[in-house]
Amino acid sequence: MGSGIKKTGVPSREELKNIPGVPSEARLEEGPVAFIECVQEIPCNPCEEACRFDAIEVGKPITNLPKLNEEKCTGCGMCVAACPGLAIFKLHKNYTAKTSIVEFPFEYHPCPQKDDNVRCVNREGQFVVEGKVIQVKSPKKFDATVLLTVEIPREYLLEVRSIERKRCK
């Protein structure tokens, strides 16, 4: 099948390394930060608009890839809910000594609740590890998009990107 976003819908390691929206390893160590997996030049900039800290720059034309200013990013998570592509994640590597948290948008039923144990999946939808929901956010301005914050063992930080969607029946 080949690899990369165009072939699989999943950005490859290479692609993620080469885009301006991904924070450095050093920055991941420091605290919560946005991780922007937007690798194609599509006409779009709500992430830039959503950030009150000027930490995302798309500029003109709006087909530019979003560029993260990792120093300015506070990890507030506003961009995660604003992205129509659901391509932004908030990562907090050193949440506890052994765990990290990943925050991502979720728009399916049933939606898990705080403290639920959930099956976490990678970008291909494959099960990776069990995690625990520590926050469920759905303020009115997200317009029905729910942000889930899930605590996972730290080694899976760069893999976990969602949770298993409950199949029908």
Binding site: P11, C38, P84, G85, L86, E124, G125, E164
Partner: peptide, 11 residues
Amino acid sequence: GVHAGKIRRAG
């Protein structure tokens, strides 16, 4: 790709 990414994550 971002639309494809959503449904890939859903398996």
